[in-house]
Simulated assay, not measured.
Amino acid sequence: MKRHAPITGEQLADNLGVSRPTLRSDLSLLVMLGLLDAKPKVGYFLGNSYRTNREPLQQLNTMKVREVQGVPVNVPDYLSVHDAVITLFTENADTLLVVNEQKRFVGIVTPKDLLKITLGNAGAAAIPVSMVMTRYPNIVTLMPDDSVMDAIRKMSLHQVDCLPVIVPREEQTADPEVTGWVSKSNIIRLMADIAMDGELGEPEL
């Protein structure tokens, strides 16, 4: 943004290699927080909050993932696709983390994964999620001591809405333990809280 501003949403999407709709909610949030400003027919540029107060960004660099991670929705690898769909709705989750009998992290299942297997497949409901999940280690993950800014960068780079937080076991070939997850909604709430705290802390003129 600093290099190309003012820049339109379409240009920004092209530079990042994503679609314009993918960025819409993120850009709206950044404008709301004052980190970006936007002018019709001109584009986006750095906002007053970014130019005058870098403290929120510094907080994201120093705050650790373990401080903001949420409780994941774990399902066993033998759970059926049918039950996985029900779990997504009942838990209001965008992603399910899959664990084996030893409660170790082995993969993730998203609504897109479930939709792919069920379309035109009458018997798909009985298939276990282990057959449709994306398997670890082919998954972008976080460590508890990673910074929140690291999480934001990974989400943006890999275009994912949720990142599992794992702790590797001493045996390098063993599956890791999953301790939590960081979702885009976690990040949005955190940034909103930081922005609110900043506003409350400003002295009155």
Rank of each mutant, 00 (worst) to 15 (best):
190 L>F: 07
162 C>N: 14
66 R>E: 13
196 M>W: 08
121 N>G: 03
204 E>M: 11
21 P>D: 10
75 V>W: 01
30 L>V: 01
97 L>S: 08
52 T>F: 09
55 E>M: 11
65 V>C: 07
108 I>P: 09
113 D>P: 10
46 L>E: 12
22 T>K: 12
140 V>H: 11
33 L>K: 03
108 I>F: 08
96 L>W: 02
149 M>S: 14
48 N>T: 13
168 P>N: 02
18 V>G: 06
84 A>C: 10
147 S>W: 03
166 I>Y: 02
132 V>C: 09
169 R>Q: 14
49 S>L: 08
125 A>S: 12
137 P>D: 08
68 V>Y: 01
67 E>A: 14
152 I>F: 03
53 N>R: 13
190 L>A: 06
27 L>V: 09
81 V>S: 04
140 V>G: 00
77 D>F: 03
56 P>S: 05
35 L>P: 00
128 P>L: 04
166 I>S: 02
172 Q>A: 15
25 S>C: 00
62 T>W: 07
147 S>E: 01
16 L>K: 09
166 I>R: 04
100 N>M: 12
137 P>K: 11
102 Q>P: 00
92 N>I: 02
106 V>K: 10
115 L>H: 12
122 A>T: 11
121 N>H: 13
143 M>G: 12
40 P>N: 06
123 G>N: 12
185 S>I: 02
188 I>M: 05
33 L>Y: 02
152 I>N: 01
115 L>D: 04
63 M>T: 14
14 D>H: 12
21 P>E: 07
13 A>N: 03
154 K>Q: 12
141 T>M: 07
73 V>Q: 03
65 V>D: 02
44 Y>K: 07
21 P>N: 10
180 G>E: 08
99 V>S: 04
8 T>M: 05
144 P>T: 07
108 I>C: 08
45 F>Y: 15
93 A>E: 05
105 F>D: 09
176 P>C: 02
36 L>S: 04
156 S>T: 15
168 P>V: 01
29 L>T: 10
194 I>M: 04
56 P>H: 04
190 L>K: 08
165 V>A: 03
67 E>Q: 14
196 M>D: 13
160 V>M: 05
64 K>W: 01
113 D>I: 09
30 L>K: 03
111 P>R: 15
62 T>C: 01
125 A>W: 12
181 W>E: 14
101 E>R: 14
152 I>K: 06
117 I>T: 13
192 A>D: 05
114 L>A: 10
108 I>T: 15
106 V>T: 14
86 I>Y: 06
72 P>H: 02
157 L>A: 14
98 V>S: 06
16 L>E: 07
169 R>H: 09
18 V>Y: 03
189 R>F: 01
176 P>K: 02
23 L>I: 11
80 S>G: 08
20 R>E: 14
96 L>S: 04
164 P>I: 02
88 L>T: 08
14 D>S: 12
14 D>G: 00
132 V>L: 02
37 D>A: 13
21 P>R: 09
43 G>T: 08
72 P>V: 04
20 R>H: 10
163 L>E: 11
19 S>W: 00
23 L>F: 10
55 E>T: 15
145 D>I: 00
170 E>F: 09
183 S>V: 05
95 T>M: 12
178 V>T: 15
100 N>E: 09
21 P>M: 06
12 L>R: 04
45 F>E: 05
36 L>V: 03
159 Q>T: 12
174 A>S: 15
4 H>V: 09
42 V>W: 00
36 L>R: 06
142 L>H: 06
201 G>C: 03
63 M>G: 00
93 A>V: 06
188 I>R: 15
33 L>M: 09
